[in-house]
Design a protein around this nucleic acid. Sequence first.
DNA 1: TAGATTGTTAATCGATTAACAATC
DNA 2: TAGATTGTTAATCGATTAACAATC
Lengths: 226, 226
Amino acid sequence: MQRKVTSSRLRGGNRAMAAPVIEKISEFTVRRLSTYYRILLDLEQKAATTISSARLAELCGVTSAQVRKDLSYFGNFGTRGLGYQVDELKGAIENILGLNKRWTMALFGAGSLGHALFFHQGFREDGFFFTHVFDTDGSKIGHKWEDVEIRPFGEAKAVLKADPVDIGVIATPVQSAQDVANLLVERGVHGILNFAPRQLVVPKEARLRNVNLAVALESLSFFLSR
Amino acid sequence: MQRKVTSSRLRGGNRAMAAPVIEKISEFTVRRLSTYYRILLDLEQKAATTISSARLAELCGVTSAQVRKDLSYFGNFGTRGLGYQVDELKGAIENILGLNKRWTMALFGAGSLGHALFFHQGFREDGFFFTHVFDTDGSKIGHKWEDVEIRPFGEAKAVLKADPVDIGVIATPVQSAQDVANLLVERGVHGILNFAPRQLVVPKEARLRNVNLAVALESLSFFLSR
DNA sequence: TAGATTGTTAATCGATTAACAATC
DNA sequence: TAGATTGTTAATCGATTAACAATC
């Protein structure tokens, strides 16, 4: 179901507009929107009221054309001659990225990485909350992180049926990662964030994002080596 | 100083070759090399001896032309008609990425993220070792992680002068991140891995990589929202 | 009005892919 | 030799940027 409506609604015009052709939004654009958003939060705190694409670009390390182009996929948020209202633009990007709602997540793997993710402050601020934690290590099971009890992996299927989540986060050892992914897919979880350094196979209706901590370091050593 | 030598040495030819024009290697290529490397490690464990670009591509989710193109920047590692020797190619990429040496790292921030990074097994396997940990929290200072003592941030300057590192890892709260970056730059550390969600300013001789945990989640919620 | 800045088009740049001669 | 697969060129695709009319 394509929602041609979305984009014209976001434009916020007071007259009907020709439904814009929905263009495919690239991952690059989405990632930059996250960056813009973070800067806008900062600016809001500093009580800035307006900002130009040129200044926002400078703060994010991109070009002003890039900023305007990225935003143009979603609507007209600025005023010619004046720039953008900080609070309005922040709100608009919040909606675009889906940060205006609460997202629930299940964490798989209660090791030190899982622990760091669970207590990561930034996630909560963005509206992402862990509602379940699973592990196979008997010594961890039954412990509570805040008000969430660590449960055995074997219970995940039933627990997620009774209380589904939007996103599954995989922070297990690499050998278990595909099993977790399979379980998530079976449970109809469409967003998967994978920290295990393994290429996971998931059907294309599932959105998979990989975060590989080693890749960033390897890229550094590549450049430091020459 | 451009080292035209590097690339022809890597070719391993037994006769002198025309020095190849050094092309700029893109970050995309470097990241894929990391992926190839990880798959090759796997294949080696499974006792595979040769692999074609087509099969390697399949395992990495790219095209075979991409694999051959990426490798071609660094030399001729394959044999027409046969493919690549797994162990040779693994060794070659290991050299290219600089994983054949030991890299030392200083960790800033001994919170739960810092803890997860310090004990992350994958780093050690790749040759990356934390030799120093700094924090400002008095209750943590003096504690030891394995044989590394957590020291006050104020001592970092002197410690890193006496015992320099290759890479600095920033896992501090966002307000301290730029200060840490400044200190690293002052100490001549050319590789910086930043986990704080803030655009850092560093001179261009410093290599900066940002890992932002929220961006991956925001990209998920973007796609899940529509 | 004059100056500033957006939104958008067209040009450019760079990355990916198809295709194939070279060659094992 | 015939079949397979590399290394590389040229074509394609897609992302970025420059430029400018629209307009506050």
